[in-house]
């Protein structure tokens, strides 16, 4: 009796969960242009028929409001996708779990740069020493240079979430004084 009751609760709960995810799915208003109409592909090209339209793949991934309309960090962390880290067995796959607090932000909230979210995708050599020095506070980063495609702007605004998303970088309130360098 007790068992079947907890069973019922379980069923009900999973039913509700299912219903709510169905609702979320139905409420997903994200739209991607078809390849034929994206202004890039030649609609006459017969090969388009065998290519995947962006929406078919991206709709299955956790939503975001800009860029590809996909939260790529979450897609990776929650294992929606598991892209290959290397082609060659001898390649060292390097991950670093440390955050850098960047405080030269004028009146904007401080910037928190997470090494982990980046090194899951990228190798150290994609940033060091060409874009950033390996010592906190020594690279002369500023917003105008970023907007011109330097520093963070090499990727953000091109392939990673765009620069319109101020708060995702400027994420630490200035009032939170004495934030440790490795705050999460």
């Amino acid at each position: 009796m007790k068992l079947s009751r907890s069973c019922m609760v379980g069923l009900l709960a999973s039913g509700l969960l299912g219903a709510s995810s169905l609702y979320l799915w139905a409420a997903d208003s994200r739209q991607w242009k078809s390849l034929e109409k994206d202004g890039l592909h030649d609609p006459e090209n017969p090969a388009l028929k065998v290519m995947q339209p962006p929406g078919a793949a991206l709709r299955l991934l956790p939503p975001d409001s800009a860029g590809n309309l996909v939260n790529w960090v979450k897609a990776l962390r929650d294992r929606y996708i598991n892209p290959r880290t290397n082609l060659y067995e001898t390649t060292q796959v390097r991950i670093l779990d440390s955050d850098i607090l960047m405080k030269r932000t004028a009146e904007m909230p401080y910037v928190l740069f997470p090494h982990r979210a980046h090194t899951e995708w990228l190798d150290c050599s994609n940033c060091h020493e060409k874009l950033f020095k390996s010592q906190a506070g020594t690279t002369p980063v500023n917003m105008l240079a970023i907007l011109q495609g330097q520093y963070c702007g090499q990727c953000h605004g091109a392939v990673s979430f765009p620069l319109t998303e101020c708060n995702r970088c400027h994420s630490v309130p200035r009032s939170s004084v004495g934030v440790p360098q490795t705050a999460k």
Binding site: P83, L87, Y88, W121
Partner: peptide
């Protein structure tokens, strides 16, 4: 990028 991380193309290759 659904299939390969950036580092495959931009570091290995």
């Amino acid at each position: 990028r659904v299939r390969f991380r950036c580092k495959v193309c931009h570091s290995e290759l």
